[in-house]
Amino acid sequence: MTTLIVNGDSRTIEASPDTPLLYVLRDELGLNAAKFGCGLGQCGACTVIVDGKAVFSCVTPVMVLEGRTVTTLEGIGSRDAPGPMQRAFIAEQAAQCGYCIPGMMMRAQALLNRDPHATDESIEAELQPHLCRCGTHMRILRAIRRAAEEMRPKTVEARTAR
């Protein structure tokens, strides 16, 4: 039995300890934002945040995460109350088929939490592990820049503007 803190709640996981986090999130906890893409940690569709870092949930057995904090896309906003990252992706219409987008948003969120002033270059470098077949890359980058602006503490913004 594994215990995880998922989107702020302590959850006891029934699945066998070698089960990938992705299956636990989707099948046991009903959190379907993270997607199965390649199953090899190569496409990024399954990305969630663990202790502040973006990880591939498809190649991460829950056993190695005992007691750690997991944040999924459901943890940074909902349909009724989307978070800044989600609002930015909607505003820029950055999704086409949308399959890769939850993973992209989670890695971008982890980056901006760590570095609210991430440069375009560091955003591009950070998103390197993510594949998108539809080709909305430019919109995705715009959305992340927009989210960064919105997430930056406004007081800091005002101070630097002066």
């Binding site: 090899l40 940690g41 190569q42 663990v50 870092k53 973006a54 990880v55 591939f56 190649v59 991460t60 190695v64 995460l65």
Partner: peptide, 14 residues
Amino acid sequence: PIMPGFGDVLDDRQ
């Protein structure tokens, strides 16, 4: 060959 890195999943002890 390809392999995902596990540095953000496994801690030093692991």
